[in-house]
């Protein structure tokens, strides 16, 4: 049944997200084709294409948040909740499915953002020939300076993992805020209270994360001598130049789990659909 929930959540959110990615793919293909053929970026169409691509890349995160939150509100606590809550599935499956679909769209937004950056770099290389390639290599060299490729990979993976947990946490904050706003005391003005709870819970989570990053230092330090990563706990970890923090992701996981169960309990025990 979980697969069926996923399928229908993808259909529900995919109607809008499909249009966004359809436009993104069309503009990206036009740009790549155009630059590959002409080796130039001189037409108004191409310039506009770049602007549209960049705008979509940034706006995509906002659109994703809006689609995911609206889908959750409508399909769980709106009139469609009459259908969702009478399906022979567990409440936690409904929540998991929505969360999974949300994460998928955020990752897609992140990949679209990376694709835009990649297209920009590639276009630069194509247009400027050897000179452009040199510029790209110089930029990569600046990032890479002093670090081995292996460590760069570790860094990249770490940031991707952190992005993933940030997305999970943000999704759970949103779902929790929407759920609290749909309990009886706040139900009448749920839009207002959703915004309010989103802000309040968001600020609380940020404060918790500030404390965690300031006082809890667990992670891996990179040694320039041995070119190896070593596990480090305590203040030493903080001063290391190349430190990969794992306290923050762990804190994000714990916060997400707490929000998931709080949302689940409210959903199961305290929600009266209007």
């Amino acid at each position: 049944m979980f697969g069926k929930l996923l399928k229908h959540d993808f259909i529900a959110t995919g109607r809008v997200m499909g249009i966004v990615y359809g436009v993104f793919a069309a503009v990206a293909l036009y740009l790549v084709g155009s630059v590959a053929l002409s080796k130039e970026l001189d037409s108004i169409g191409e310039m506009l294409g770049y602007i549209v691509l960049c705008l979509i890349s940034f706006a995509n995160f906002v659109v994703t948040a809006a689609v995911v939150m609206l889908n959750f509100q409508k399909s769980v606590y709106g009139d469609q909740g009459y259908l969702t809550f009478t399906l022979p599935v567990k409440s936690e499956s409904v929540l998991f499915s929505k969360m999974f679909v949300s994460i998928f769209w955020y990752i897609a937004a992140f990949l679209a953002f990376l694709a835009t950056a990649r297209i920009a770099l590639w276009s630069m290389g194509e247009m400027m020939g050897d000179e452009g390639l040199g510029l790209v290599e110089m930029l990569l060299g600046m990032v890479q300076e002093g670090l081995s490729v292996n460590v760069l990979i570790v860094y990249a993976v770490t940031y991707v993992i952190q992005f993933f947990f940030l997305v999970v946490t943000f999704t759970m904050i949103a779902y929790f805020a929407i759920t609290v706003s749909n309990t009886r005391p706040f139900q009448k003005h749920y839009v207002l209270f959703t915004i309010l709870f989103l802000a309040v819970v968001g600020i609380v989570v940020l404060k918790v994360m500030d404390i965690v990053t300031e006082y809890i230092h667990i992670g891996f330090n990179y040694s320039y001598v041995t070119e190896k990563l070593t596990f480090a706990v305590g203040t030493d970890a903080m001063v290391a130049l190349a430190h990969i923090d794992i306290a923050a992701p762990i804190a994000l996981i714990l916060i997400s789990v707490g929000l998931f169960f709080s949302t689940y309990i409210l959903m199961k025990k305290k929600i009266n659909i209007r």
């Binding site: 529900a12 009139d79 469609q80 009459y82 259908l83 009478t86 022979p88 599935v89 567990k90």
Partner: peptide, 19 residues
Amino acid sequence: VESKKVVAYLPEKNYLPPW
């Protein structure tokens, strides 16, 4: 979950998405 398999419910309002 088990009871929902055997109960068919017709609510008073439209519960399907408009699309």
